[in-house]
Every structure is written in C-alpha cells, then in structure tokens.
Amino acid sequence: MEALIAKNITKRYANHTALDDVSLSIPSQSIFGLLGPNGAGKTTMIRIINQIIDADEGEVLVNGTRLNAEHISIIGYLPEERGLYKKMKVGEQLVYLGQLRNMSRKDAVEKSKAWTKKLDIYEWWDKKVEDLSKGMAQKIQFIATVLNEPQLIILDEPFSGFDPVNANLIKDEILELREKGSTIIFSTHRMESVEELCDHIALINKSKLILDGSKKQIKQSYRSNTYLVEHAGQLNGSLPDKFTTLENQTLDENFYQTTIKTAEGISPNELLTNLIGITEVHSFVEKIPSISEIFISKVGGTK
C-alpha cells in the first residue's frame, strides 16, 4: 500500500521550472528521504503535498484519493523555516495549531498535555514562547507537527537546532511514530541521518528526479565490487589478473590495508579464497558507497 503517490508533477514559475515531471511513490509506514541540493525543488514538492501551492500538471494521491482539504487533518508538517507566535503561551499555541488541523478543542487539549508530558516540557505549559530556549521551542514545534497523530508526517530538516541529546529523543519519537503506522517524509542535508533512518530515498536535482528507490536497492546498484582487506604479510602482486589492487597502505609493521576491485561476476568468497592462500586476513569488508558519496557523484556529475 502506498501512503502517497505523486504522478508527473510539474510546477513552473515565470523564469524557471521548479519541478519537472517528478513522480514519487512512498510506501506506507516507511521513512522516505527526500534529498537534493539547495534549490532543487524539494520545498516546492513539499508545499504541493501540503496544498500550500498547486501543481501545474500531475496529481498527488494520498491513501489512493486525490489530495483535498480533508487530508489536512491526517498530515503533519514541520517546515524548515519554522516558528511560533512568540507572545502566545505554549499550551494555547499547541491547542490552536491542533484545532487548525481539524482537531476538536477537547482533543487538542488532551493530546497537547500528553505530548508535553512525554517530552518533559509540561511545566512550560503556561509560559510564553518567547521565554523558551531554542531547543524547547523546537520541541514544541515537533509536538505541534505530530499532535493530530498524522498518518503522513513531513519533516524538513527536523534535527537542525537540536543538541545531540534532544536530536536522539526526536529520532526515537520518529521511529515510534513509524511503528504506530505513520509514514514519514524526511527532507534533510544530513546524510548520516538518512543513512540511519531512511528506508526509501528520492534524489531531486535541478527540478528533476534523478534517483529513486529503497536505500538497500540503491546502495546495491552502486556497488563497485570493491573490498577493503586488512592483512598481515605482503600481497606482492601475487593475486590473479581478475583482481585489481587499487590502493595499498601500510598500517603497522608488516600490517597492511589493501583496496581490491574484482572483475564483474566474481563473488567475494572467490577473492577471499585467493587471499587466504597468500596472506593472513584480519578483516574483509565490501566497500559499499555511502548515501553521501552517491549524492555527490549524482549531483556533482550533472554540473
């Protein structure tokens, strides 16, 4: 089941095209990483899903129905540029934002209290937002986003401004929400969070979708049959021709790290078997490209 399907979305402005025929398919209960360099069109995509702007062409389906005003109550949105009414009290503000997401007043009050207690900020309920520290305000913004138990949560750079402790707290909440059935669209420039959290990834560059799929699958397709071996005793070029030594480093006395690329269709076991005959293998790791490397190679390559 797909939580959200975007079909051939195009959005043009007077001087440029913000999105050019972009299609996304976001599986239910996944964490979907929406990546791309600045100005690629991510925010436009997110705004279209939030019905802040309309696409010129294409359509968005949420749970199989075309995006409409009803969906406001099942979406939660934490924009990158975010803020709160400074003069308003924390509690009032959460209730107000909940009501704007079609929650009843009573429901909004209950959920706000539960969440502020859960994130350990309930004692600030009657304080004005301007009295909060930046980290606390970020927590309030996060609560406002998930208050209506949204089925679809859109988070744009959710960790910016958080200290590592709170970032971890929020990360755990995100994972818990996914367990409970929410789908999360996650836009960020922090590749380590993508690596850690995302199941699926889409990469938008210059208004076009250039990469799309599950993280595992993408990583697989970027395998380069390269292995990192740490071993005691020299190789001395005694490997067969189907193995190419890319790099050799001396780590310690008679202890080396070698990067070896194998020819197409050769299994890691075959390399290992060959190595065992020559040297004493201490570690053997396949070198899989990180999301960051994929990002740079894809985006950098198109420049």
Partner: peptide
C-alpha cells in the same frame, strides 16, 4: 510578525 516568525508556513498548510 507572522512572516518573520516563520509560523506562517505551518498555518497556510492548514488554511
């Protein structure tokens, strides 16, 4: 104030 607060984007995603 709403614009410089940046709260406006959240609000216009609901109204």
């Amino acid at each position: 104030e709403e614009k410089s607060n940046k709260i406006v984007e959240v609000i216009v995603s609901t109204v």
